[in-house]
């Protein structure tokens, strides 16, 4: 599909907006529908779309596998880290009330970082899954 002009142009045009939409869904999730799970999937879908159009190698140049692997571990650690921050600041595990100046600000901050952790993990896992299945096929084809 690398040589299809329409696909190349359309995917290049739409990809920034897909990533932007993922960020919107991530950070606007407090006020409208959305959150870490959806944002992660949408961000991964944008890269997957790029990978389908331009080939796996191009996608892997854009987002190297090592970055993806770090990302999916970092998300879980960020989530757990928010919980530990609650303990360090004198509360219970995953207790957001102590994170901010007052309880509402603390809750808001806690939710924000937790959602960020979820988003990173989901995006990383979905992208990694795509890379694994696609690269498996390429290797089998070469052999």
């Amino acid at each position: 599909m690398k040589d299809d002009l329409i696909l190349r142009v359309v995917s290049k045009l739409t990809m920034p907006f897909m990533l932007l939409f993922a960020l919107y869904v991530q950070f606007h999730g407090d006020f409208g529908p959305g959150g870490g799970f959806q944002a992660g999937v949408i961000a991964a879908a944008a890269i997957v779309f790029y990978g389908i159009t331009f080939g796996l190698a191009a996608a892997q140049r854009l987002v190297p596998e090592i970055v993806v692997e770090r990302l999916l571990a970092a998300g879980v650690l960020l989530y757990a880290g928010v919980g530990l921050a609650g303990i360090l600041l004198g509360g219970n595990y995953l207790d957001y009330f102590v994170l901010g100046a007052d309880t509402v600000a603390g809750q808001h901050r806690g939710i924000f970082w937790v959602e960020a952790g979820v988003g990173l993990t989901v995006a990383g896992v979905m992208l990694k899954l795509f890379y694994m299945f696609a690269s498996r096929g390429r290797d089998a084809g070469d052999a």
Binding site: G29, D30, G34, V104, H108, G110, E115, V118
Partner: peptide, 20 residues
């Protein structure tokens, strides 16, 4: 929580362990 989307609030705060 100061978050109008109750789904997000429950997901990340009230049921934080669950989501972890």
């Amino acid at each position: 929580t100061g978050v109008p989307n109750v789904v997000t609030a429950v997901l990340a705060s009230y049921r934080g362990y669950d989501t972890l």
